[in-house]
Design a protein around this nucleic acid. Sequence first.
RNA 1: GGCAGGUUGCCCGAGCGGCCAAUGGGAGCGGACUGUAAAUCCGUCGGCUUUGCCUUCGAAGGUUCGAAUCCUUCACCUGCCA
Length: 422
Amino acid sequence: MSAAVDPGLWDDLTWRGLIANSTDADALRAALSAGSVGFYVGFDPSAPSLHMGHLVQVLTAKRLQLAGHTPYALVGGATGMIGDPRDAGERVLNPLDTVQEWVARIRSQIEPFLSFEGDNAATMVNNYDWTAGLSTIDFLRDIGKHFPVNRMLARDVVRNRLEDGISYTEFSYVLLQSMDFLELFRRHGVTLQFGGSDQWGNLTAGVELIRRAAGERVHAIATPLMTKADGTKYGKTEGGALWLDPAMLSPYAFHQFWLNAEDEKVGELLRVFTFLPREEIEALEKQTADEPFRRAGQRALADAVTTEVHGERETQQAKAAAAALFGTGDLHDLDATTLAAALGEAGSASAPSGTGVVDLLLASGLVTSKGEARRTIAEGGAYLNNERITDVEAVPGSGDLLPGGWLVLRRGKKRLAGIQVG
RNA sequence: GGCAGGUUGCCCGAGCGGCCAAUGGGAGCGGACUGUAAAUCCGUCGGCUUUGCCUUCGAAGGUUCGAAUCCUUCACCUGCCA
C-alpha cells in the first residue's frame, strides 16, 4: 500500500526555489505523485551542532514527509570519520569518540523535525552500521570497481584540490556516500537522495553507482546554497556559524539573525525556511517592498524560524528581550524582572562595583582585550545604558545602576550585554 | 633520491640587515546616513601597567650593536628531474 501523497509537492518545492538541480525532473515528479517515496538525506558530524545550511535539508525532509514520503535521516558516523573534500583544504581527522558524540547530538537535533509514527514514519540511520565491518577487499571489489578514476578526477572539488594536494582519504569520500545510497536502496528501497548543491557530485555519483551495481534508476535533488545578496556566504554571526544548538547560539541571537535579514533576501528566506503558505509569503514580500522600514517580512521570518527551531516559548522571550533592549523607552523605566530576562537572553556577566568601563566591556565579552575596549570607546562605539561612553577612565557609580543592579553595555548598534554589579 | 622555489598578522599578499607590529587588498569591528536593511563614505584592525614596554613574520640554533630580512639544521608545501 502507499500512503496518500500530496500531488502539489513538486510545484511547491519549485516555487520555493528548493530545487537547484535534479535528475530527470519529469520522472521524479511522476514518482513523487505515484506514491510514498523512500528518500534519504545525510548529515556528517563535522561539528557538535547543525547550522543554517543543514536547516535547509532538515526542513526539506520535513516538507517531503508532510507530503507523504518516507524519510531516512542519515547521520554519518562513517563519512564523518573520513571528511568530504572541500576547497579550503585537507581536513583534520576527528577522533572516533568525538565523532560518535557529535553523531548523538546531531541525531537529537534532527529528530524533533520528523515524525516517527504512521505509514511514512521516519527512520534514523548511521552508515557506520554497514561500513564498520566491511573489508577493504570487498569494498574495492564491490564498490571501487564502479568508480572510474578519470571521472572522479574531473569533479570540481577534486580538480580544485589537485594543485594544493588531496589525500587518498578525502578522494575516496564519494565512494562512501555513494555506497550509503546503494545500501539504503537495497535495505529500504530508498530511491531519492537530496542535499545541498555543493553535494551534487556526491549525489549523482550515488545515482550512478545504483545504476551500475543494481541496474536501477534512482533520483537526486540538490537544494540551493544560501548566500547573501552580494553572493558571499551566509550564516555568520558574531559567534561564528548560525548554530541550531541553543547552548552554542542563544535563541535571542538566532532570532536577531533572521530579524536582520536583507530586504532583498526576505522573500527567498521565507520560502526556504518557513512553512508559511504561498499567499502569506507573497503578501509579506509586497509589504517589504512597499514599506521596507516596517520590516514585516523580517519579523515574520524571525518568528517563524525561531519557533521551528527553538519553540514558541523561546521565540516570545527573544522578542520580549529585543523589545525591551531596542525599544524607544528609557532603560531606567524597565522593571528589574523584564531587564533581567532580557539581559539573560542577550548575554550577561557580573563585576564588582568600582570597575571601570574598559574592564566592564571586557567582562561583558563585547570585546576581547582592553586595547579593543579602549579603541571602541575612542571610536565612539561603546555605550553605557544607551549613552555613548566618552571617557576611557569612567567608573560607573551607584547612580548609573538600573533596577536589579544592572548596567547595560552596548557595542555598536546591536551588540548588547548586561553586567550585574555587586 | 637530485635540483629549484616557497612557508609573513583572520585570509590573500608586499617586505629582503636598522626608518617594521611590519605596504596594499579582502574579511572583521566602529562611526555617519537609514529602518536593528543594502549601497556608499570615513575611521580602525597583536597584547599590555600605552609618550613606553612585551610577543609576532614555519621550528630550533647562530652571525651582528641590531634580523621578517644573513648563516645552519629540522618540518611541511610546490614545481622540474630521477
